[in-house]
């Protein structure tokens, strides 16, 4: 039922889009009909290019997100648990976070050239901060009363961490991961728009300069589908984890 309801609006949008090709409010250059987008997709699939664009983009996101999230979890845990690490590192990390992430692009290209490394690194940066910030804040706001009760029963150090602190922040970790994943897709497109020869971001720039609006729509729809799918996968794990740990 919920699934059906959630499909109502996309269905209506698709209908309005199809209707436009009949009524002609927007020209086919501005808004090609759904059939043209489908044809563009078929053509790219037949030439074997579409799969490459999707695969390389997904690969970049997965690698970048995994590394960024892992670093975010490590630093979030370190600064959330240790006042010393917080005092030592928070100003620096806060300053780095304040830099608009696209400002790193020229430097990354200078250091790593235009290749996979610079793109993946940008995605790592994008995924890092939401994960780091969410975990850090969650660890700082673990119910003090629970922590005290744990201490009163002799839990400390690693045992206090694994028995009380980590389980308490599991739901927050997942919301951080989902935010980080959304950022990863955002930064993927940014990286590919700037410099690439393959990937959905490249497909966008390339189609734009060739006036292929149908392909632009195709790329946007694919990004929406991929982003939503990966987020839904994470959402399923999140629901399981929240049930388990709260």
């Amino acid at each position: 039922m919920r699934l059906l309801l959630s499909l109502v609006v996309p269905g209506l949008l698709l209908g309005a889009w199809q209707l436009n090709s009949v009524v002609g409010v927007f020209s086919p250059i501005q808004l090609p009909p759904p059939s043209a987008v489908l044809a563009a997709a078929t053509e790219l699939v037949e030439r074997g290019e579409l799969w490459l664009h999707v695969a390389i983009s997904t690969q970049r996101v997965l690698i970048g997100f995994t590394l960024g999230a892992a670093l975010g979890l490590a630093f979030g845990a370190l600064l959330g648990l240790s006042r010393l690490a917080d005092a030592l590192l928070m100003t620096t990390i806060g300053a780095l976070r304040a830099v608009p992430s696209l400002a790193w692009v020229p430097l990354l290209i200078l250091w790593m050239k235009i290749g996979e490394d610079s793109k993946v690194t940008l995605i790592v940066i994008g995924a890092f901060f939401p994960v780091f910030t969410t975990l850090f804040l969650a660890l700082r706001h673990v119910d003090r009363q629970l922590v005290e009760a744990g201490r009163a029963f002799g839990l400390r150090g690693v045992r206090l961490l694994t028995t009380v602190l980590l389980p308490a922040v599991v739901p927050a970790i997942f919301s951080g991961l989902r935010l980080g994943l959304a950022q990863a897709w955002l930064f993927l497109v940014a990286a590919e728009l700037i410099a690439s020869s393959l990937g959905l971001g490249f497909l966008l720039v390339d189609s734009s300069s060739n006036g292929r609006t149908d392909r632009i729509f195709l790329a946007i729809i694919l990004l929406a589908v991929l982003g939503k799918t990966t987020d839904a996968l994470l959402g399923v794990t999140e629901r399981w984890a929240v049930r388990r740990w709260t």
Partner: peptide, 28 residues
């Protein structure tokens, strides 16, 4: 510091929400 010879019960139950009652009692 925390003394093994004492045990505390607080005004709030302060049980770990992700554990069963059995596992919570075992913490003690």
């Amino acid at each position: 510091g925390i003394d093994e010879r004492c045990a505390v019960a607080f005004q709030e139950p302060r049980l770990l929400p992700w554990h069963t009652l059995r596992a919570n009692v075992a913490i003690g």
